[in-house]
Design a protein around this nucleic acid. Sequence first.
RNA 1: GCCGACAUAGCUCAGCUGGUAGAGCAACUGAUUCGUAAUCAGUAGGUCCCCAGUUCAAUUCUGGGUGUCGGCUCCA
Length: 650
Amino acid sequence: MSDIVTVTLPDGSQKEAPRGTRVADFVREKIGAGLAKAAYVARLDGEPVDLSRPLDRDVRLEVVTTRNPEALTVARHDAAHVMASVVQKLYPGTQVTIGPSIEDGFYYDFARENPFTPEDLERIEKGTNEAIALDQPFLREEVSMAEALALFERLGEGYKVEIVKDIAARGAKTLTLYRHGDWVDFCLGPHGPSTGRIGVVKLTSVAGAYWRGDPKNPMLQRIYGTSFFSKKELDEWATRLEEARKRDHRKLGPALGLFTFHPYAPGAAFWLDKGTTLYHLLGDAMRRLTRKNGYLEVKTPLLFNKKLWETSGHWGKYRENMFLVVDSETDEKLPLEDRCTQSLKPMNCPSHHLLYAMQKRSYRELPIRYHTQDVLHRNEASGTLSGLTRVRQFQQDDAHIYLAESQIVEEVRSLVRQIDVVYKAMGLSYTAKFSTRPEVKLGDDATWDRAEAALKGALDAVGLPYEVKPGEGAFYGPKIDFDVTDSIGRKWQLATIQLDYLAPERFDLTYVGDDNAEHRPVVIHRAIYGSFERFLAILTEHFAGAFPLWLAPVQARVVTVSDRFNDWAAEVAARLEAEGFRVELDHTSEKLGAKIRDAQLQKIPFTVVVGEKEVEARGVSPRRRGGEDLKTMPLEAFVELLRKEGATPY
RNA sequence: GCCGACAUAGCUCAGCUGGUAGAGCAACUGAUUCGUAAUCAGUAGGUCCCCAGUUCAAUUCUGGGUGUCGGCUCCA
């Protein structure tokens, strides 16, 4: 074996080094001091490793510098280690569990009697940054499982012992330990070179979290934090948070007169007039879109006998999420549960299935598409409610499509196009996820083959990029989910297209084919907005309350320069209203500047100024939200402008 | 539901260690009649989330509830 190894760099160039040279030394000596300084971790043949690892074979080497987001992920994991070491120093007796990097930061779960207070958090944050300043190297060490077990047993780390045993049970022979200072944890790594390279740590919150995410397990104390390589980046992050806070639909909604909540109805919104307008605009747009695509809009009962839920399977698995209703005609002596013979519907699908099954269906009718915007109730756990994104009462732009298997490709292709139209109109970019058969599933492989091929074929036909999620489909069929990205880069899962082979079985749905025999249809569940509530929350934050003209609850506000011009202003408002535009008139005795400011704060798309000039010209001077002055124009020209710019995009 | 924090005027917030509350904006009234992000003056507005308890006295301390927020679990 040669004492020299060949290292291939990402640009294809090759360099040689003595076997056993540490990556860090190689980079500094053979590539450059600058890169060595910026390096955080490295990849050897694609595998992430510490810079202290030796080059023991011919390898491809990539240096991961602090400019690479991957390095930040590692640094945050480093930060979690350092924080855990500080916590154990400050609060002896606290046990450590796990502490990974997450999007935007890290957390670490601790086992201890008393929760951390905000003051504790400050103390820990200060201690963590001080520990970072000590600049202790991260040292990697491989030990046998037995040694590891003995180590953590000696340290009294019960949770760690449990994890080590699990890892051993999965057949691992050795465990890697990482030390900094006198603190030790086991960890796959990699870690950065030393604590000093982590940068700045900011702790954000404490929260309870179940051990291994299971409510049956003890509750641990989780500390969330984040870190950045520089103070500047930390400040930028804080600014972004502030920006998101300003857009929070829970603040903007009430401020813009869209919706509000009352303690007597947790999880159910009061829709104020402007919010109701928005709600209807979205609903009507979806009605047009579905009608154009061959859907039938139907409404089904809100309250159903439990027999429906027994048929659908919800009574068994979903009952605790349903609002049960006592039937007053049942025997009062019966236990409450037996008197609850009805439930508010938590979803529309079962009632659509009933509708389908009420008549004999022919293959000539398929696909049959039912669209419903009814009110749904789900009894969500109180602690999970949040603004409009998580409510107990909501409406979906729900639809179920009953079709023959041979029609799936064409139908999904149409659906993907509809989704594209809606999200493009909102300026939401999106990506698709395609989830295939899970391990526990219904139906035979041939059916799954056809179903997956149909979904995939439709995605390919539309040319939509998608990520495959193997095994993540529902047990009753594969699905496509759509993630949208809003204007400040946050992702939300919205639309879904699910193939369902189970429901037609449970409800015994059939159609008569051209062979005069009975066949099973397939059901597609689809929603594009998801729920109106959540979609409006997302849109409010995405647009920061400044809705596009076609959605704006008030499209124009007519403001007078003084009350001498009230008559013409009223005529202008009346004319715009007659054209179907949503208009307000501000003829208070405020100064023009104040009226404009008020209209801006309400995020109204057009402020229409009416004064001396306009009265003479029988015109208006519109000003766009944001400040652009369109100068004086004839009233009819403005009507035309609104008509053109305010057209509904779908 | 579980863990933690919070709850004062419509909104944003003040109110040392217990002595029944204040500001700015909004609202209302009057004056002002004004040209593209705040005219001036005045008035009114509070069961300090609710229910118990401790105390001579509770917005303040204790307990219980409700709601909200951040997480866990769950999810449109």
